[in-house]
Design a protein around this nucleic acid. Structure first.
Lengths: 340, 340
DNA sequence: AATAGTTTTGCAAATGTTTTCATAAATTGC
DNA sequence: GCAATTTATGAAAACATTTGCAAAACTATT
């Protein structure tokens, strides 16, 4: 706001320094091609001298885009979301947008409150995580009609363009693989479904696919644990220490699988001879375990990038293609699951 | 901007609906205690009916704070930064701020450009990662005098309040531990120091501490690798497969150590009997390995939270205490490093 | 050198708020 | 029931810009 002399530097002070009118300075930034080369130079010098920095807030009240996009994720510090956010941010940065980032911790109330905040800032677009959201959330978006995308999960009939993987399909793929390898004694380790349609879709699909093949997962082999290596390690360890052990453990995501792998090590079980473990996600590092984790890749970076590009396009051109995109999951077979 | 009827809804339309003047509506939001209860009710109803959402952009040009803080990290999708950002975001959210997040990928040019963007948005505060930045960056901050904190690394004499761990000390601590356990054949695996004062400080301290104890690390045992499990695994595997093996490997951070651990598994080496491996960071999950990773904890969450609180305080009260804070690193001894 | 045409610039209104100051309304004391 | 306070509201200026329109400054043409 102030240059080295402490004077505030606005478009007017620049205009004075360049001996032109404020309008001309405005044009210098917004339509430079309308200016004579010499005035352009003069203004450039004045801008530098005054240390002037454009004020987007003042532009925004003229209906000009704010250049911000609100990104709302459950938590930032989970590999998956961090990757999506990184890719998203990079993609929209190329188009000149900056992201407002917030996390709601799976709390619908907070999600609504944050969304309101985003709208107060007059974000040009909104990216939410997952398909399911409070009715109030959708109403708010509808009423303000801000371009919106839903990331991470994919469904053809989602309310807003969804860009992500079909989590149901992912669950199906991994269980089919496990079945194909001959496993019939299968346990599951899921993330809690509350406020998390991705987790819900996966566990549903896994259980259904197994059931369809005649494999029923007993109640005490259906474990649920928060998204955390240590928690899943504890749970899996308990499972492995019990009298009857499954031949395979299907985990709702790779983090859970990581915990399970460590639990197996602690329990003295060798992968994949003593126990098969699979995950969903193919997070950074999942390929590096010894043996590598068999999983279903959900292309986080691709999703983030694509979501960002779609949203940026929708903002720049309201008539742009607003259909979602399915970033197909992909079975990645490594050494952690063997045939029986 | 528009309610369900497509009419734009601003403070004036609300005023009309409530049959009061715009000033009164403004007061309803900013100084509700000045209003009569009945008018307050009337306005409340009108706001709801019109679906009005405050416009921070319009407030901001009145010199009112924008309610945003610019956070600039090298990359978002590395555990450490994700954790810091999460904690930071939570802390400032409590004070009503939303973060503008961007990553520069260790490119000073981009850092400067992003900073400018932040300032265009009239952020109320800025959080940068690390102590070292381009002269231009500091000049820009200086000229706009925006409250600023430097996160992650700590130094008493930093240009702006720094809140983080003393990375030099961390490097010292881990190498002292390794030395104390009797290791003399020590190899190192560092992250590249370019544009990364944290990495630089650590490797410097490690080498110095070892040297001071009379342990010289031969050139071909000083490995450098990008921040990636797969890369460090490759490098460590090469090291472990060579004719002469060190008794201990000190890694610049836990991610690198993770790769090294997998490399050991692949090379058929048992931890800690055949090789000792240590890291720096104590990232999520480092405790769960079998055996757990001996490392130096850098309290990411505490740093993020503290940085957020300090910055928020500095914004709200320009005379607030602006000294940094040292979140001391802490040696965490687990099973991955044994005495010789 | 005058005219017509084109390019460049400035004026003034507009944007959505906040805030100061003044006025109107309500409350109190008598 | 009236003046003196106190409280609640409105009018208008201010904030930092953009933009439509008109005026001024150039160029090209004759």
């Amino acid at each position: 706001m102030s240059d080295k002399n402490g004077k505030k530097s606005d478009i007017i002070s620049v205009a004075k320094a360049a001996r032109v009118s404020p309008s001309t300075v405005s044009r210098y930034f917004n339509h430079p091609e309308l200016l004579k080369l010499t005035t352009r130079r003069r203004i450039e010098k004045a801008v530098r001298k005054e240390g002037y920095i454009r004020n987007r807030a003042a532009q925004t009240i003229h209906g000009i885009r704010s250049g911000t996009i609100g990104v709302l994720v459950p938590t930032i510090d989970h590999t998956i979301f961090a990757e999506v956010v990184q890719a998203f941010s990079d993609a929209v940065a190329e188009e000149g947008f900056t992201i407002l980032l917030a996390s709601h911790g799976y709390d619908p109330q907070r999600e609504y409150a944050i969304l309101r905040k985003f709208l107060e800032h007059r974000v040009d677009g909104i990216a939410l995580t997952g398909l399911d959201h409070d009715e109030a959330v959708f109403q708010l978006i509808e009423s303000q009609d801000v371009p919106t995308v839903l990331m991470w999960n994919y469904a053809e009939d989602s309310l807003y363009p969804s860009i992500g993987a079909d989590n149901e399909l992912a669950g199906q793929m991994i269980s089919q693989h496990v079945l194909a390898l001959g496993h019939r004694e299968v346990a599951c380790l899921f993330a809690p479904g509350a406020g998390n349609d991705r987790a819900k879709a996966r566990s549903r699909a896994i259980l259904n696919t197994l059931a369809a093949a005649g494999v029923a997962v007993p109640q005490d082999w259906q474990l649920t644990t928060v998204y955390s290596v240590s928690e899943s390690k504890r749970q899996a360890f308990a499972l492995f220490s019990s009298a009857k052990r499954p031949t395979a453990l299907i985990c709702g995501n790779d983090i859970l699988a990581t915990g399970a792998i460590y639990a197996a090590a602690r329990a003295g079980l060798k992968l994949p001879d003593d126990i098969s473990i699979v995950g969903i996600g193919d997070f950074k590092g999942s390929s590096e375990f010894e043996p590598g984790l068999t999983t279903v890749r959900l292309p986080a970076r691709r999703i983030g990038r694509r979501a960002g590009m779609t949203l940026a396009a929708a903002i720049k051109d309201p008539k742009a293609d607003r259909t979602g995109a399915h970033c197909a999951p992909e079975l990645v077979v490594r050494g952690s699951c063997r045939a029986i």
